[in-house]
């Protein structure tokens, strides 16, 4: 296990960037670790893998990886990723994003990329708030959640990002939490292997930002909260219809896995029909 960690560190991490900018007990490091192990397991050629991100804590991740990285504008990562992928379809694209970046300012790009089904793996660090700017209300903050811009408790319904992705047509969707690193890693690997738009939502602790305002000050508070408030999809499926209706837990696991025509494959078909020699 330790040898594995060393292998991952030496192979993939950018040595000049440490220590990281992340707060103590932040879950983003776990996300990075899961992603790199998944990349290793999927045997991606790191020279042919491009990491793209927007703005926010999670979007700083490409900087810690020794590979090509594009740290773009807020919410727009997927649009840049679209350009890279369509210009060089042989490249693999990994997008790191967060709940605010992806579903707030970037919501429109998110649903359209899912609809188009362009081959890329979008890893969303969902920590329920805008961490980098100091814990403001995000599109996923639960009702009642206290953020610096919802000091009396949030009254807006949050987005279920995975449901949004499925609704928009993403063929692969999984939701996990950092307390399940192995499953998270496997889900990312599945997403990488999927030819199409793969979305992996990872519930992630932000104790210094969201946590301390919402009785989740320690990493272990999150651990207990996630355990208490989530249910594996396999267990959820076994519930009766009535039980499902009254179940207010977060369903985690692989939530969607379909075969759909992928954009660059369809475009290559179209080109081969119309190309002028």
């Amino acid at each position: 296990m330790f040898r594995k960690a060393k292998h991952i560190r030496e192979k993939y991490l950018e040595e000049n960037m440490w220590p990281s900018i992340f707060c103590q007990a932040c879950g983003i490091g776990t996300v990075l670790s899961c992603a790199l192990r998944a990349i290793d397991k999927a045997k991606l050629d790191i020279d042919q893998t491009i990491f793209v991100s927007g703005i926010g804590c999670s979007s700083r991740l490409p900087g810690y990886i020794n590979a090509d990285g594009l740290h773009t504008t807020h919410g727009r990562a997927i649009t840049f990723a679209t350009g890279i992928k369509l210009a060089r379809p042989e490249l693999k694209i990994i997008v790191f994003t967060g709940d605010g970046d992806l579903a707030g300012i970037g919501g429109n790009h998110f649903i359209h990329a899912a609809r188009r089904n362009i081959d890329m793996t979008v890893i969303c660090v969902n920590n329920y708030n805008y961490g980098m700017t100091g814990s403001q209300l995000s599109p996923t903050t639960p009702i009642g959640g206290v953020a610096t811009t919802s000091p009396y408790g949030n009254i807006e319904s949050p987005f279920d990002l995975s449901a949004l992705a499925i609704g928009a047509g993403a063929p692969y969707v999984a939701k996990w939490a950092t307390i399940y690193p192995h499953e998270t890693m496997l889900a990312i690997k599945d997403g990488i292997d999927k030819e199409g738009f793969a979305f992996i939502e990872i519930l992630t602790p932000c104790p210094v930002g969201y946590g301390r305002r919402n009785k989740l000050k320690q990493g272990k508070d999150y651990l207990l909260w996630f355990k208490k408030n989530s249910i594996a999809r396999s267990r959820y499926e076994k519930l009766s219809d009535e039980e499902k209706r009254s179940c207010d837990k977060i369903v985690i696991g692989k939530l969607n896995d379909l075969e759909k025509p992928e954009f660059t494959r369809e475009w290559s078909r179209l080109v081969d029909q119309h190309f002028v020699e």
Partner: peptide, 16 residues
């Protein structure tokens, strides 16, 4: 989906 995305995409393509 909009013009913001259009410029994002052309920058991505250019870097590729």
């Amino acid at each position: 989906e909009d013009e913001i995305a259009s410029v994002g995409a052309i920058i991505g393509a250019s870097r590729a």
